[in-house]
């Protein structure tokens, strides 16, 4: 965490020592992470996705919108490894380019939810009392709506396009992040280092952001990576219902929606985009779960 060194960066000699200690900490966490198969498989999948998304135009053999009337609904072949759709577009190229949409929505919405949710949650958990009570009732109420339903409603308000999907999902997932941040802050608040900081004369702002927040990062990180998976699923669902990405965008959910009518004759039109979704979502879920094992040692500890 950057704040670890915050108070000390001015000093060259001590900042050297601190970086060493920090390095050791990260090295230790990385060692645990490396030994966690789940985490490593998840990380490998996520990295693959990111690389594919970055170099998508280079990997895709065809353009996403290039139609070919002579090659409509073709089964997978060497030319078209995933087959073609009803307009003769190459499904492989569309699946590859679709990774950009999925990651864009996944990351974009979680960055938004983290920004608001972390602050609300940590402040609420630390402050306690009336502030906490009111904020949490509002969050409870927001969580009473199933995420998809709330996102759909927001999409109706905002109109269907990709950036609005991000806004809607950020709105929907903020309470989930806030809840995790709150419970982390709540348990940190009972740690004596907080009282120690108060008795040192620190202000509430300093304590929340410099003392408590860095200690809440682990569960937030876990929740965030799992929520990326949720958001990618939600994007697929919204697009499937026609309220997310709009044609001709190569969104995986949208591809499945349009392939639905040809399910019996050309199942590859739903199978490959479907596999892509599953692959991406499993990656983030495994990464999140692996991170939980490493960062939150409450479960699975062995006494010796």
């Amino acid at each position: 965490m950057a704040t670890d060194a915050g108070t000390e960066t001015k000093r060259a000699d001590s900042s050297f020592r601190i970086t060493t200690a920090q390095k050791e900490r990260y090295a230790r966490l990385w060692r645990q992470f490396r030994h966690n198969t789940k985490a490593m498989v998840g990380l490998a999948i996520v990295l693959t996705l990111v690389v594919v998304a970055l170099f998508a135009p280079l990997i895709a053999p065809y353009s996403v919108s290039e139609t070919n009337i002579d090659a409509r609904s073709e089964a997978p072949s060497l030319q078209h490894p995933f087959g073609t759709d009803e307009l003769g577009r190459d499904i492989f190229s569309r699946v590859v380019l679709g990774s950009r949409i999925s990651l864009y929505v996944g990351f974009g919405s979680i960055v938004g939810a983290l920004a608001v949710g972390t602050t609300v949650g940590v402040v609420s958990g630390y402050a306690g009392g009336m502030v906490d009570e009111v904020l949490m009732r509002v969050m409870d109420a927001a969580m009473a709506f199933p995420p998809i339903l709330l996102a759909l409603t927001v999409m109706v308000v905002l109109g269907p396009n990709l950036n609005n999907v991000i806004l809607a999902l950020a709105f929907v997932y903020t309470p989930y992040i806030a809840r995790v941040g709150r419970s982390a802050a709540l348990s940190e608040r009972n740690e004596e280092y907080v009282e120690s900081a108060v008795s040192r004369g620190e202000s509430d702002g300093y304590i929340v952001f410099k003392e408590v927040l860095p200690n809440c990062m682990a569960p937030l990180l876990v929740q965030a990576s799992i929520n990326v998976a949720f958001a990618m699923l939600a994007e697929a669902s919204l697009s499937f219902l026609g309220l997310g990405a709009q044609p001709p965008k190569p969104s995986w959910g949208l591809m499945i929606n349009s392939g639905r009518g040809f399910m019996q004759t050309a199942p590859w039109m739903i199978i490959f985009p479907g596999l892509a979704i599953a692959f991406a979502v499993i990656g983030f879920n495994m990464l999140g779960d692996g991170l939980r094992d490493v960062l939150d040692p409450k479960v699975d500890t062995v006494e010796s």
């Binding site: 697929a236 479907g274 979704i277 499993i282 879920n285």
Partner: peptide, 26 residues
């Protein structure tokens, strides 16, 4: 069990639905 869980939670409901229709109904 945990792999089974990951697969279950990672495949969108509509995809489960379409696949089931394809396999068990069609």
């Amino acid at each position: 069990a945990s792999m089974f869980g990951f697969v279950g939670v990672s495949i969108p409901i509509f995809l489960w639905g379409l696949v089931f229709i394809l396999v068990f109904a069609v």
